[in-house]
Design a protein around this nucleic acid. Sequence first.
DNA 1: CGGCGTACATATCAACTGTTATGTACCTAC
DNA 2: GTAGGTACATAACAGTTGATATGTACGCCG
Lengths: 197, 197
Amino acid sequence: MPAKLDHEARRRDVSAAVWRVLATEGFGGLTLRAVAAELNATTGLVTHYFPSKQALIVHALELAEARTRALVPPTENARGLEALKQALAAVLPLTPEATELNRVWVSSWDAALADPELRIMEMSRYTRWRARLKPLVLQAQQDGDLPPGNPNDLVAGLAAFTHGLVVQALFDPRAFPHKRLRQLLDAHLEALTPRRG
Amino acid sequence: MPAKLDHEARRRDVSAAVWRVLATEGFGGLTLRAVAAELNATTGLVTHYFPSKQALIVHALELAEARTRALVPPTENARGLEALKQALAAVLPLTPEATELNRVWVSSWDAALADPELRIMEMSRYTRWRARLKPLVLQAQQDGDLPPGNPNDLVAGLAAFTHGLVVQALFDPRAFPHKRLRQLLDAHLEALTPRRG
DNA sequence: CGGCGTACATATCAACTGTTATGTACCTAC
DNA sequence: GTAGGTACATAACAGTTGATATGTACGCCG
């Protein structure tokens, strides 16, 4: 039998270091040495847990997805439009953690557009995100809080609106303070809400 | 007097090579050697026209902005909502050139978020884009084609929607064919249009 | 306790990066 | 024609990159 300490725990330490590098240096600054330095260790350690840089990147993106997913608990007590609003607001850079996450996310797009494998991963992530939003949109439509029509289009539009806002806020946080971000999202959803008699 | 051939023309050749590299390799693949290879030349040529890589990057981004601006001619015969729709549609990846442009744009965000100078440039670009859209939004509001309220918020929301759509389309062009992109934009603007009595 | 696999550190590798110095051909002005 | 600056090619630079091979300490199982 092999001599194990706690492999998984140590691997999570490396993960955390990867994350810190990504958050501060962006995706272009992700190097084996940077991760090692973050751990006060050497590249030998990093390569011991991740066989190649590609594996490290993939892991980092999985990490980002997991963290994103954790921001929006799947078991909401709210439903329909209100739950949708919360789900979208959770993506906005309203907290340091969400800002960090979006930074990593956006900065990954360079590599993701260049590498076919990463690109497919990112595509799938978007698909999954929309799939998660869809039931909420359907509920809101049934409640009359969103206009009828193709729910997939509505979801895509809402995802677009949200991420587009994220990008603008990342580059110009002063022009997009938390209050305004919330207000923009609220106003947008309200503008979509059909008037009732 | 110095011995000049046509410095500016040659510089534009280098520009074009830079652009080709960006379009195919993304921002992370922009190296002096790649540009030189694109010109069947050496790094000596590139450094002769651009003193440093930073200068090369800045120039590349200015190039991207100029091309983006050229996509939407400032002198429209249309006005109001229709002009706005055209202006936003021009940004969408509906043509190979627009797709190429958006690829470069999005891939630049990694470097732009990491480098303070580039970040400010990108911030300014967004500000200018919104400023260009604003009069069209104001016209549409006056025409009753867009709801009243803070026009700056409307502009920011429309820019967000458009760029968010761009990103999704770049990663998943099959799920977002040209027809659907146009339709999504149209439907979105229509959904915002107040009903009139 | 002895052997074996794990968990690293250390070292080295070739490849690639941006930068810079040097050489050289060529055009232009005198 | 010749002096001087331009337009590069060539070359070498120091640094960084991911990968890999080797060493070694240490914990577990027999």
